[in-house]
Design a protein around this nucleic acid. Structure first.
Lengths: 207, 207, 207, 207
DNA sequence: CATGAATGAGAATTCATTCAT
DNA sequence: TATGAATGAATTCTCATTCAT
């Protein structure tokens, strides 16, 4: 009677897991972490609440996973840009623009997660995610400083500022992310210009 | 025949109100809005939960007050800088530095509140506060553009980026605000340089 | 230093007591017992909540008093009618009409109290009041039976029915006591006819 | 892949719902709406408070249901009598007797609900219920007037009076519904005679 | 005697988590 | 393994009553 986990079953398990994460992501993108109740996630995933706990030991674990999955995708894309060709300036512009563009489209959750703290458990993960984003930008900044494209600066601080700047411009209530789609390019241009100017910062060198 | 409210009592009432706000502020600065339960606030203030409701009609009202009080103080100081003498560049530097410096000291909650969404009621106030901060920086940017200190730019977007940048640099976990006090000046310098460079943005003028 | 209670003081105490009862009555007539909070009563009476407890040991006691005061007045008037001249039938008509008329005017609270149960303590008093009203009508019914104006009947039950009938017709939501003032006489006529017919009840004697 | 809800479970759910309603009914019949706390209901039903909210969205909804269930049963029975054969007089007698008889037995809550106002939400339902009772009696009265069994009269007022009369005779403390069961028939007879006499009202036709 | 701020025991409702089926 | 009903601790808010001033 030894229990052999069939391939079919394995696939179902994997797909259930993905389905749960997808459902959770959808709900978060709609109403934020605050409104993503376990029962709603289960229902969206076509499962029972009990089943959720077979895949994730707690709500926090589930949302940490959701967060990481979303951020992983971002990081992959950003890393490609960062490690790609072009000047540091171009790569920074592209990285910011790429992030902002996808965030404006949704349902990309990176921004939602970045902006919304919750329980301590999830918060810790969020913090790590912000750090991962920070690392991406640190890499660009460092390479820009090395080849004298960028001014000398506190790399940690600048990276934090960049992440904060585009996050706020996107999700912050100040920033009119609701302007409408036509202005998308304008917003992207404005934010990436801001960030590039900040790190380049050859300020009035000829005066 | 009405009794005269004794001065002693008046002082007690005033001090209680302040005590409640202070207790709430403390708890928020420790554990965020989500851990600031009414009972905890009451206990911290040395009162009963019922007493809280004599001073504030609801939890949301209390925290809106706490938030506004913190932000009011900031805005007063920032406005003074903004409307003061000096070039736009100097004023921007000073404004950012001033905010960051006080935030690093604490218990200044402006940054905590700026960063943490909660219930819809409080959230509305938070959004207004961010907007108020945004307005301060818009004013500087506009004046800088007018006198050609700053490049032409999307004022709304830049203001959002500035607020996001120093917020993130402060509360964001990327920027280790836990570094210790020795680095305070360094952080302040880094963040304000970042913001100034971003809006000035005379990028590579001699190339 | 023996304390002589001055006449002035005695008068104030008495007038305060009356003021409290009046305030309570007003609030009840507006929003029912449910909405007559002690603080509101105090405020309406121009006193502090604490003062209330100098005159009444508890909320229940206060409202029992209010109830009894209102009912006392009714009973005095009804008793006058009951013990006055006229046939039992006339006296019953007058009694019902008199009660209904004053109730329609307000702020007569008898009906409000009659219709609204609350805490056990007050409820007991309410029950007693209904009994007192019942006694009034029992007296009329008995005298009507004695002189053969009314049919033989269960006096207790009939009295209860009468009280219930006009109470419901007044405060019950079925009975449109909101019809407007022009219909006042019509309602009074209808209700008293109903009650008289019920106790006379010489039903189809000639058939 | 959805599991089939077992019949056993379905039965449990149905019986739980009924159990909750029954528990609520019991508590109301004992101590009135004001003593029927959600925790007490849950405990009486052998459930947790949380479970109650799976079946009813709020306390008000639960009690509206309880009220309506009780009244529905009454109305069905009364309607049968009203629309049945017999003279208007007979049908009125039967309707009143039927209601009073069942009310004396309990746990029939119609009378309890009829007599006790509570929170606004439940109150609205209570008012509707009284109106439904009123309609039943209006129908009889109208048909009695049409075929000259009853005197001309204000149908609305009379219906209200009837409902008030038997309600008071039952729950009102004047009419000792605690008399004991032997007097049941006597009370029923007295109340229905009262109501019939009231609407027939051919008062002293031969004098 | 008057004041009214403070008390604190409730009461309703929510939701992550468990466990019998 | 899946289900989803049940749990129950947690949390906000209310209001009669008390007591220091």
């Amino acid at each position: 009677m030894a229990y052999q986990r069939s391939e079919r079953m394995q696939r179902r398990i994997a797909s259930n897991r993905e389905g749960i994460v997808a459902a959770a992501r959808l709900l978060v993108s709609k109403g934020g972490l605050r409104e993503a109740r376990m029962e709603a996630v289960a229902s969206e995933a076509g499962l029972s609440t009990g089943a959720l706990y077979r895949y994730f030991p707690s709500k926090a674990d589930l949302f940490v996973d959701v967060l990481n999955a979303a951020v992983d995708r971002e990081i992959v894309i950003l890393d490609e840009i960062v490690n790609g060709p072009g000047s540091a300036r171009e790569r920074l512009t592209d990285a910011v623009a790429s992030f902002v563009r996808r965030a404006l489209r949704g349902p990309n959750l990176a921004y939602a997660f970045i902006a919304e703290p919750t329980e301590a458990d999830v918060d810790a993960a969020r913090i790590l995610c912000r750090m991962r984003f920070g690392e991406v930008f640190k890499a660009i900044i460092r390479s820009g400083i090395e080849n004298s494209e960028f001014r000398a600066q506190d790399v940690d601080a600048s990276a934090a500022c960049i992440v904060g700047a585009f996050t706020e411009a996107l999700v912050g209530p100040i920033a009119p992310s609701t302007r409408g789609v036509e202005d998308e390019d304008r917003l992207i241009g404005a934010v990436s210009s801001f960030c590039v100017a900040a790190v380049v910062g050859v300020v009035m060198p000829c005066q």
